[in-house]
């Protein structure tokens, strides 16, 4: 259980920092950089979530299809 809570906090932290960066870059008129920062943050978290979901699917497979 400890692992999942850790990852949720990490996602929240990345979200907060990326949101701040977006706001600051937006305020000084660097819209294009702000969008890139947000996009990279999103991709990073997407990869993290995808690996967790992959774990879930593996587990489901091993339960229902009787594989290792």
């Amino acid at each position: 259980m400890g692992l999942e809570v850790d990852i949720i906090f990490k996602i929240a932290g990345v979200g907060i920092v990326v949101a701040f960066l977006h706001t600051i870059l937006d305020q000084v008129g660097k819209k294009e950089y702000a969008q890139w920062v947000t996009l990279f943050g999103f991709i990073y978290i997407l990869f993290m979530v995808a690996s967790i979901v992959d774990d879930l699917f593996q587990k489901i497979k091993s339960v229902f299809l009787f594989e290792g």
């Binding site: 990490k10 932290g13 990345v14 920092v17 990326v18 701040f20 960066l21 600051i24 870059l25 305020q27 000084v28 008129g29 990073y44």
Partner: peptide
Amino acid sequence: QKYGKMVKSLGFLSGLLIVILLI
């Protein structure tokens, strides 16, 4: 006036981001 405050908070926030990514 435009970038003075931005670079300060940018430095701090990028440090925070690196730390969170590395934990």
